[in-house]
Amino acid sequence: SSRTRFTDYQLRVLQDFFDTNAYPKDDEIEQLSTVLNLPTRVIVVWFQNARQKARK
């Protein structure tokens, strides 16, 4: 499976959201998916990875 290449804009939006809320609800994931034009699955994985990094 090929890795998703995020744009600077997508990363900024995801990071800004994460800084406020590391555990987005389903409807928030749907909204991010629509706004960023990314599959919900990709967003879910991004947040999982971001939470892992934040824990270190």
Rank of each mutant, 00 (worst) to 15 (best):
V42N: 04
R12W: 03
R5E: 15
Y9G: 14
T20R: 14
D26E: 07
Q10T: 07
E30Y: 04
E30Q: 15
R5W: 09
A54E: 12
Q31L: 05
R51Q: 05
R3D: 15
F47K: 01
K53M: 14
R41E: 07
Y9P: 10
Q52T: 12
D19C: 06
V13T: 12
Q15R: 09
N21R: 07
E28H: 07
Q10D: 03
K25H: 03
D8R: 04
F47R: 01
R3L: 15
V42H: 13
Q48P: 00
Q10I: 03
V44A: 10
N37V: 10
K53D: 14
W46N: 00
E28I: 01
V13C: 07
F47N: 01
T34Q: 08
S1G: 15
S33G: 06
L36M: 08
Q10P: 02
V45N: 03
K56V: 09
V13S: 10
A50F: 10
F47V: 05
P39Y: 01
Y9K: 15
Q15M: 13
N49F: 12
T4F: 07
W46E: 03
D16L: 02
S2H: 09
F6D: 09
I43L: 10
L36D: 00
Q31C: 06
K25A: 06
A22M: 14
R5M: 15
T4W: 03
R12S: 06
D16K: 09
L36R: 01
A22H: 09
F18I: 08
D19F: 08
V45G: 13
R3F: 15
R5N: 15
R41F: 07
D26G: 12
A54V: 11
L11T: 10
K56C: 05
W46M: 00
N37I: 07
Y23P: 04
D16Q: 13
T7V: 05
T34D: 07
R3P: 14
P24F: 01
S1F: 14
R55N: 14
R41C: 12
A22Q: 12
V45P: 06
K53A: 14
A54R: 07
D16F: 01
T7S: 12
T7R: 02
I43R: 00
K25C: 09
W46S: 03
R12N: 11
D16A: 10
L36G: 04
D16H: 07
L14G: 00
Q52H: 12
I29K: 02
D16M: 04
R3Q: 13
I43N: 00
N37E: 04
T7H: 02
T34F: 14
I43Y: 00
L14K: 00
L32G: 00
L32Q: 01
E30W: 04
D26S: 11
K53L: 14
R5D: 15
D27L: 12
L11F: 12
D26N: 09
P39L: 00
D8T: 05
F6S: 02
P39V: 01
L38I: 10
S2M: 14
